[in-house]
Amino acid sequence: MSVNGSRVVSVGHYQPEKILTNDDLAKMVDTNDEWIVSRVGIKERRIAAEGQKVADLAIEAARQALENGGFTAADIDMVIVATVSAKDLCPNTACRVSDALGIGAPAAIDINTACSGFEYALAQADMAIRTGATRRALVIGAECLSAVTDWEDRSSCVLFGDGAGAVVVEGTDDPELAISPVLWGSEPSMSDVIRIEEDVPFIKQAGQTVFRWATTQLAPLIEQVAERAGLKVNELAAFVPHQANLRIIQGIAKRLDFNDDCVVAEDIVYSGNTSAASVPLALSKLVQSGKVASGAPILLFGFGGGLTYAGQVIRCP
């Protein structure tokens, strides 16, 4: 049976125990706390334990999202994992997660659009539920970027971290609560700007080019995301953008007409850039903080490698 829309009903997240501070990094490369905080706004990030894989982080975040919503494995018939750092090509991470949590026979999909992966995945779950193909989906963003970080490159190794966030999505016939139509797209002509390639298996990016693109091109797209939800930017209760760099987040926010009460997620300060995990991670913490009222509109926007971008408005569960 098809429904008119879908909504996010619960959230969860997981971060590895190991904290890597800026002082720790100063012992590894030529850098210091003041330099890192002033350039990218990051104070610390979490690093996966030896042997801990993307799937292990995804499983813990998914388990939290199920528990927080009072769901069991039997309630889920679709699992989508957004990740750019899963090293295993087969099975995909969604199957690993489903097996670990005892989810019987879900549609199990991995998706790679780098830092916008979670928003692409959420849009696919929304469409699957609307058509009636899926009843209730687990949508996860999970990354072990520490495994694709060049720990000798002081310009990049200060940026990245590991973590995972997850949400449960189910059908609704209440248009007020439904996830808005996604705005998604890409800039394929800028494919070379952010790379993790076979011959150099570390994250390499043209920082100035990415910074210029993000701070000058994205604000109008974010306004369009709000428009698709029938809202103006100043009606949003919260804005959760990809946590790329605090100066990018603030640079984008400066160009948007948020009201003074709108909460702009800045989880990057304590988590670093976790690519596809950054939005669900920040969203889960924001929801659990109680700062946003249930039913209030939250705009999600991912952007990064590809270059790709995607966003939608959800209602706070």
Partner: peptide
């Protein structure tokens, strides 16, 4: 002026003076 602030300076200069300054 660090590398990211330089981008902000360049973007502002493009707007103010109507020129293009590629990366």
């Amino acid at each position: 002026v660090d590398s990211l602030a330089m981008v902000e300076v360049v973007v502002a200069a493009e707007e103010k003076f109507g020129v293009k300054i590629p990366d």
